[in-house]
Design a protein around this nucleic acid. Sequence first.
DNA 1: ATTTTATTGCAACCTTGTTGCATTTAATGT
DNA 2: ACATTAAATGCAACAAGGTTGCAATAAAAT
Lengths: 138, 138
Amino acid sequence: MEENILLRQLLRERKLKATSTRLDVLAVISGYNKAIPFSEIQNSLHDFDRVTLYRTINSLMKSGIIHKASVGEKETFYAVCSSKCSSDSHNHKHIHFKCSNCKAVTCVQADSAINFAITGHTINNFEIEATGICVSCN
Amino acid sequence: MEENILLRQLLRERKLKATSTRLDVLAVISGYNKAIPFSEIQNSLHDFDRVTLYRTINSLMKSGIIHKASVGEKETFYAVCSSKCSSDSHNHKHIHFKCSNCKAVTCVQADSAINFAITGHTINNFEIEATGICVSCN
DNA sequence: ATTTTATTGCAACCTTGTTGCATTTAATGT
DNA sequence: ACATTAAATGCAACAAGGTTGCAATAAAAT
Ligand SMILES: [Mn+2]
Ligand SMILES: [Mn+2]
Ligand SMILES: [Zn+2]
Ligand SMILES: [Zn+2]
């Protein structure tokens, strides 16, 4: 109810109608504190149509509010974007880390900036997916 | 016909029967010289069942002959493994690069080894997918 | 309060990939 | 070359994940 106001604002800033579906979905995703698997969103909210959920997720992604954080091929994970993302462009410089123990997927920063070159190629963007053991499991 | 012998050998080494399906699929994939999209394999070879193609690709992957080279979420790409891969383990230390101009996906080495750390985390493995402009388009 | 415009639900569909089972094919030993 | 064995194939059926068209509904703007 109270926090709702913040989410409402966020949606309006990105020129999305603040519908109850979007508010609910957004609350679940941002309350999760790590990347959330699609099924987890679905289970938390079985009061609207499958199709609506897909469409909601798509519009949240297009407007730079959330992003996919897929590691491995299986289920799709979603995470809230940093404030630097907008409707125009997603702008992440972090790593998607999957803990092989607890299976959690998180967005983490590397300790120092990662740079590499490939002769003859122009690198415009890159994504890193890492697996290992996370902080809590260590 | 002549090269067939090499592919036959390769399959036998990995303890796979050298069936004509496998020889055909393998010839297409290794003749492509970059990562090949699934649909491209399908189009080159419409003489056997869809299911067989899936099963063939799976056994080639399990035995360390080819690997997935997916960049972005859309279609799945496959590429031949370096000789270092076996039935036991895939062992790639390269980058999957997608050219935003010609759309080709290639397996490339970075100019120098890539290393990074994440405080509190143990990193066991990572994958890098990069986008940009490839050699031929540059 | 009314109009405008975006979002939702539903049903139908598509793509990608998998499974069970009977049939065929490749490898192995004679 | 022939029979035996074990693996691979085709077919039909299924399942998960995701999309589309369209009429009904809800949010925003006037
Ligand atoms: Mn992320
Ligand atoms: Mn590769
Ligand atoms: Zn963990
Ligand atoms: Zn190119």
